[in-house]
Design a protein around this nucleic acid. Structure first.
Lengths: 353, 353
DNA sequence: CTGTTAGCGCTTTCAT
DNA sequence: ATGAAAGCGCTAACAG
């Protein structure tokens, strides 16, 4: 289609440093073209590019010259097929607009790039079927797979285990990960939120909460501690995921509209908390004097925008780095120090909640 | 290494519905294994999976049964090599933590997934050499490439053009894109900011500005309009990219510390603007009464957190969608409606800046 | 509708 | 240090 018509200039096919004719007609330059022009064998070209130390300086230079002159770009697909190393690591996140995951993605990608790996990005939320996404990914034979969360369909687990590809699950804890794990306990995080609010004297606590899986676990933790302390009525506004800002506004409105009295509102994410705070301001409610607000997770974001928001801070970049290190260790045949890493979380109190 | 020792059970190699022995020793199941067990030829298996309509229902079912029983996952690397279709689209962004790009990535990925394409994510900022990243990408023979921005090294341009891979540049405008383009004019955006501030009566305008490429163009536009209106002194605090929140705080502090009098502060991004607003609040400066603040780009974020921030809104998801459509059209051999699309921007006034 | 043949472009293996 | 042969696993092209 976009092919240029064959050149009209006479071209001696025997001239060693001329491009083979077909290479000038739109087809990609192959290693054999380079080899022919450089007057060596294909394997020598391969070595010159991948293991220059195995080649005489003169040969090396000659090959390099031809490579740059012809614009040869090695076909990594062919290389991958033969060498069984795809140079790819897949990373699956529910969604990227969540702002919760971007730091992890950034760090993960950076760390992997440094070792020559490219990242295949999978976003699973808009397709219900994570399994389908993963099936597609496994077919590309990545050398490692990063997964968000530990809840996967049994067939997904089987598929991944059968694939023998190193897997890191992240952002959560599990006694029986597929392979490796870097995360923290959402239950404990929820408990920590409850304990903090109780310690601050709050007994009338409302929830503005996203209904995703991990948030649900945090809520369990939170509610169980409240229950232990005799608090069983916890007015809750459950927001459809992804828990964005506007949902936070609506959440507080719903709580207050229901007639519930609350001295504190706990949110499943800092974005929701921002919405709650905005709505409160609009209603002349002072934060944290009238209502204390507590968030979760996206500490950087929260720190920036709400000096009065106490939150649970997650080291998102650390998760990415540790995940990358774990995968790289396995890929490169090194010992993995710990198969399961709990990075924990910190409660960051600000604005005397 | 992880190989299980060969099974001890007697296994008649001739039995058609038995797995070939080597398949049970840790090696991946291939199409030939499936073919043998199903009693058909490899190509029939291939067709059953990729073009089921070309195969009898009975054959189809038999193949599918064997596939699911053996856990066969087609090796897309081999398929890609032979068919010359990698099923991959590469997307390059400066960085993902910028929050400016996430909506675009999300939409782009979603649109491409729907057509069966996976996204290879490239983050170019932490490696100075975009060209190296792109060289690595081109070697993987993606069927399309999304690039952020229009400023690329000449050799990158050459490489991309020579590759014949469809390319969309985005987030910017250029009279001579590599191939296709979806963006908007940063110069005009800057001009719009200036005109708005002037219309509001501001003559003492300060800048808190990131020093990345596109921001620089916006600044040019802004300054030129100010100059046309006789304003030549524009106190500026230039922040190293990425322009994060904290930089905004520091930026305002620097402006005020320098003794400049400003009635309005224009920022190169909404995140910076948030920082400026936070710093102002801490200093008891009212926004927008004492100082008006203007931002750029991340409208959703800004809308959520600062009702008093006027900003230039960019339809980030639209950019992703259009870019995906353009690439898909080219990949699928359809006509591309417009090679260059200007999505424009809107000035969103809030809080009577 | 199904099969045979060949080969995508590279790198492994073994030889020199 | 370099090369020849073989083949990774799949699908295009052509039979039948």
């Amino acid at each position: 289609m976009a092919r240029t018509p064959p050149g009209k200039q006479p071209q001696d096919p025997g001239t060693p440093d001329a491009l083979p004719r077909h290479a000038r007609a739109g087809k990609a330059v192959t290693i054999r073209d380079v080899a022919k022009v450089a007057g060596v064998s294909p394997i020598t070209v391969s070595r010159a590019l991948n293991h220059p130390e195995l080649v005489t300086p003169e040969t090396l230079e000659r090959v390099r010259a031809v490579v740059s002159r012809t614009g040869y770009v090695p076909n990594e697909i062919a290389g991958s097929l033969r060498s069984r190393r795809s140079g790819i690591v897949a990373a699956v996140f529910p969604q990227i607009t969540n702002s919760m995951f971007v730091d992890t993605i950034q760090t993960l990608t950076d760390c992997l790039r440094q070792e020559g790996y490219q990242v295949l990005l999978g976003l699973s939320s808009y397709e219900e079927r994570e399994d389908e996404l993963i099936a597609g990914i496994v077919g590309r034979r990545p050398e490692g797979i990063y997964l968000t969360g530990v809840a996967h369909a049994p067939e997904t687990r089987r598929r991944l285990i059968a694939s023998h590809i190193p897997v890191v699950e992240a952002w959560d804890l599990s006694p029986s990960p597929i392979d490796m794990l870097v995360g923290f306990s959402h239950e404990k995080a929820g408990e920590a939120m409850a304990r903090h609010l109780l310690a601050k004297g709050h007994r009338e606590i409302g929830l503005v909460w996203g209904n995703d899986l991990r948030a649900g676990v945090r809520r369990q933790g939170l509610l169980s501690v409240l229950a232990e302390n005799g608090i069983h009525e916890v007015p809750t506004s459950l927001e459809p995921a992804p828990g964005m800002f506007q949902r936070g506004r609506e959440g507080l409105a719903e709580l207050l509209g229901s007639g519930a009295r609350v001295s504190a509102v706990a949110c499943s994410s800092d974005v929701l908390a921002q919405g709650v705070i905005a709505e409160a301001r609009d209603r002349g409610i002072r934060i944290p004097e009238d209502i204390a607000v507590m968030g979760f997770g996206d500490f950087d974001f929260a720190a920036h925008t709400s000096p009065s928001l106490t939150t649970i801070a997650i080291e998102k970049a650390l998760i990415g780095r540790l995940a990358a290190q774990a995968l790289l260790a396995r890929i490169q045949g090194r010992e993995v120090p710990e198969r399961i890493v709990d990075v924990g979380f910190r409660l960051v109190e600000r604005g005397s909640t």
